[in-house]
Each structure stands twice: as structure tokens, then as C-alpha cells.
Measured scan of single mutants.
Amino acid sequence: MTTFKLIINGKTLKGEITIEAVDAAEKEKIFKQYANDNGIDGEWTYDDATKTFTVTE
């Protein structure tokens, strides 16, 4: 398992979430669903070196 981080830079929601997953593709799906469930629609980036997804509205 690898630890992945999501950084949220939303208009109404900001924060960080850290979760373990098998791979980045699995985690991306979970993070995007979390963002969608919380009304966050923005630009996504991924840094493989730090295993960090960022979504910015």
C-alpha cells in the first residue's frame, strides 16, 4: 500500500486528506468522488514524486 494525499483548494472547502491505496488510479477515483460529493469542481493535478493530488477551484 502507498500513502496518497489530496490537497483541496476550493472556494468553500480547503484542507488535506491522506489515505492509503494500492495505486494512484484507485486513489484518483476515490478522491474525485469525494470532491464531487462535496461540490468541488476544479482543475486536478498529480505529483508522482510526492504522491499528491491537488484540486483547485
Results as ranks from 00 to 15, higher is better:
53 F>I: 03
40 I>Q: 01
32 K>T: 08
42 G>E: 01
51 K>T: 03
29 K>M: 11
39 G>T: 03
10 G>T: 15
46 Y>P: 00
27 K>G: 15
18 T>F: 13
52 T>W: 02
35 A>S: 03
29 K>P: 03
26 E>V: 09
40 I>D: 02
28 E>V: 10
38 N>A: 10
43 E>P: 04
49 A>Y: 06
53 F>M: 05
8 I>A: 00
15 G>I: 15
47 D>V: 03
50 T>S: 07
55 V>P: 00
21 A>Q: 04
42 G>T: 01
43 E>M: 10
31 F>N: 02
48 D>R: 03
27 K>D: 02
36 N>M: 14
6 L>F: 14
2 T>H: 08
15 G>P: 03
4 F>A: 02
37 D>S: 08
30 I>T: 03
5 K>T: 13
32 K>E: 06
34 Y>S: 01
52 T>A: 02
21 A>D: 04
38 N>Y: 13
57 E>I: 15
56 T>G: 04
55 V>T: 02
47 D>S: 03
10 G>N: 04
41 D>P: 04
37 D>P: 02
33 Q>V: 06
3 T>Q: 07
14 K>M: 12
3 T>A: 06
17 I>A: 02
52 T>P: 00
39 G>M: 05
7 I>V: 10
10 G>K: 04
49 A>F: 07
54 T>C: 12
45 T>L: 05
13 L>A: 06
20 E>N: 10
41 D>C: 14
44 W>C: 04
42 G>V: 08
55 V>Q: 04
51 K>A: 05
33 Q>T: 05
8 I>H: 01
57 E>P: 11
43 E>W: 12
28 E>W: 15
11 K>Y: 11
48 D>L: 05
52 T>S: 03
53 F>L: 05
22 V>Q: 09
24 A>R: 09
42 G>Q: 04
42 G>F: 10
5 K>F: 14
55 V>H: 03
34 Y>L: 12
23 D>E: 06
44 W>S: 00
53 F>W: 08
23 D>N: 09
52 T>R: 01
9 N>C: 15
9 N>L: 13
23 D>A: 06
1 M>F: 12
11 K>H: 11
21 A>G: 15
41 D>F: 15
14 K>G: 05
18 T>G: 03
49 A>S: 08
52 T>L: 02
35 A>Y: 05
45 T>E: 07
6 L>W: 10
33 Q>D: 04
13 L>S: 06
25 A>C: 10
13 L>E: 07
44 W>L: 03
40 I>V: 06
46 Y>L: 01
33 Q>A: 11
50 T>L: 04
5 K>V: 11
22 V>S: 11
25 A>S: 10
39 G>N: 08
27 K>L: 15
32 K>Y: 09
4 F>I: 11
14 K>P: 08
34 Y>P: 00
52 T>Q: 02
27 K>W: 15
4 F>Q: 02
20 E>V: 14
12 T>K: 07
56 T>P: 02
44 W>A: 01
33 Q>P: 01
8 I>F: 13
27 K>R: 14
24 A>E: 11
43 E>N: 08
15 G>A: 15
17 I>T: 03
4 F>N: 02
33 Q>W: 08
7 I>S: 01
48 D>Y: 07
39 G>S: 05
19 I>P: 01
10 G>R: 03
20 E>D: 08
43 E>D: 10
13 L>T: 08
51 K>Y: 09
39 G>Q: 06
47 D>H: 03
49 A>T: 09
43 E>S: 08
1 M>A: 08
34 Y>R: 01
